[in-house]
Amino acid sequence: MLLGTYTPKLDEKGRIILPAKFRDEFEGGVVMTRGQERCVYVFSETEFETFADGIRRVPVGSKQGRDFLRLLLSGAQSEQPDRQNRMTIPQSLRSYAGLDRDLVVIGAGNRAEIWDAQAWDAYVTANEEDFSNTAEEVIPGLF
């Protein structure tokens, strides 16, 4: 399970160094794609296959499902971390997420998410109150 918050820098070639705690999970390669809220989702190859299998079950008659599938899969790209544990974020995904030099990488269970540092700070600030107010009726069985 991917957990935690890390603050790597994006180098001039569009690469980041993977957080040490994520390296075992991603050593076989990653799939990066558009994430919701303008971040980049990073899955292990295996986890992405599982995730994509679930999405492919959405009925073709569902416009919302088709739209989600198209945007998610059309933005997906495979990447293999190099020997220094660096991973290149494709330019299209850097543009989509507004990534600049300062990044935040979070563990989100089955995936990592890469955020522009300012966008992450704004997201946390905007959602802290809702997080504090999340109750049993929102996520049954949580508390």
Rank of each mutant, 00 (worst) to 15 (best):
A135G: 14
G98E: 09
R111Y: 00
F43R: 10
G109A: 14
R15D: 11
D67I: 04
P140I: 01
L10R: 06
K9F: 00
S95P: 06
D11F: 09
W120Q: 01
G29W: 04
T7H: 13
F26M: 15
Y123Q: 12
S74M: 13
D116I: 11
L142R: 12
C39Q: 08
Q118A: 12
I106A: 10
Q80L: 00
G61R: 07
E27K: 15
I89T: 07
L71M: 07
G35T: 03
E113K: 09
I114R: 05
N127S: 01
F26L: 15
L93Y: 09
D100T: 09
P59R: 07
I114Y: 13
K9I: 10
P19Y: 14
L69Q: 13
W115E: 12
L142A: 03
A117E: 15
I106H: 00
R34M: 05
A112W: 04
I55H: 04
G75R: 00
T88D: 10
I17S: 14
V124S: 01
G61P: 14
E113Q: 12
R66T: 03
G28S: 15
V58L: 15
A52F: 08
E113T: 10
I17H: 13
T7C: 07
K13R: 14
Y96R: 00
M1A: 06
D82K: 00
V31N: 03
R57E: 15
G4F: 05
E45N: 10
R66M: 02
E79C: 02
P8C: 12
E79A: 15
R111A: 02
V30S: 15
M1F: 12
G54L: 07
G75Y: 03
G141T: 10
V30Y: 01
G65L: 05
P19W: 08
V104L: 07
R23K: 05
M32H: 01
M87G: 03
G4H: 07
L3S: 11
Q118G: 09
S95Q: 08
L71F: 14
F51P: 00
V124Y: 06
S78H: 08
A126T: 14
N127P: 12
P19T: 12
Q91Y: 11
T33G: 03
R15V: 07
E45L: 11
W115M: 06
Y6H: 10
A97V: 05
N127T: 14
L99K: 05
L18F: 03
R23G: 02
I139R: 05
R83M: 13
G75I: 00
V42W: 05
G141W: 03
L73Y: 05
A126I: 01
V42S: 05
M32A: 13
V31M: 08
F48T: 10
M32P: 00
D24R: 02
R86E: 10
S95R: 10
D67N: 02
G54K: 11
R56V: 03
A119C: 08
V104N: 00
I16V: 13
D67E: 11
Q80D: 03
A117N: 10
I16Y: 09
G107L: 07
E79M: 11
N127I: 02
R111T: 00
Q118H: 06
G29K: 07
R23Y: 09
T134G: 02
G141E: 06
